[in-house]
């Protein structure tokens, strides 16, 4: 029962993030937030199953994911600052130079 709840929760989180990605056309920041949500759902699973299997290694994995996610968001934010300086916006629909 508990397991079902956790898995359903994480799955709903992922799906919400996907939907957010797809319906959101403009704002890069919201896209980044969605990515963070995907990371979170993975982490929830890791932590829960480390508990479930009485094994602490899953938590170590979750820690590493947090670290990598932090690094990723740092770089993404830096790029966004650059983009903002260049175009004065963070609208992803402005980045159309490679359109075929």
């Amino acid at each position: 029962m508990l397991r079902s709840i956790i898995i359903l929760t994480s799955m709903m989180l992922v799906l919400t993030a996907f939907v957010g990605m797809i319906i959101n056309r403009r704002n890069l920041i919201v896209m980044l937030l969605c990515v963070e949500m995907i990371f979170l759902s993975a982490n929830i699973n890791f932590v829960y199953f480390s508990r479930f299997h009485q094994h602490v290694h899953g938590q170590v994995m979750a820690l590493m994911i947090i670290v990598v996610a932090a690094a990723e968001s740092a770089v993404a934010l830096a790029l966004m600052v650059l983009m903002y300086r260049q175009y004065h916006t963070v609208d992803s629909s402005k980045l159309v130079n490679i359109r075929g």
Binding site: N24, R25, R26, I29, S73, L77, Y84, V90
Partner: peptide
């Protein structure tokens, strides 16, 4: 950091596709 960024960049409200 995100919050700072959003406020600093003064991003206007987003519109759906």
């Amino acid at each position: 950091l995100f919050l700072f960024m959003v406020m600093m960049m003064n991003v206007d409200s987003y519109t759906p596709d």
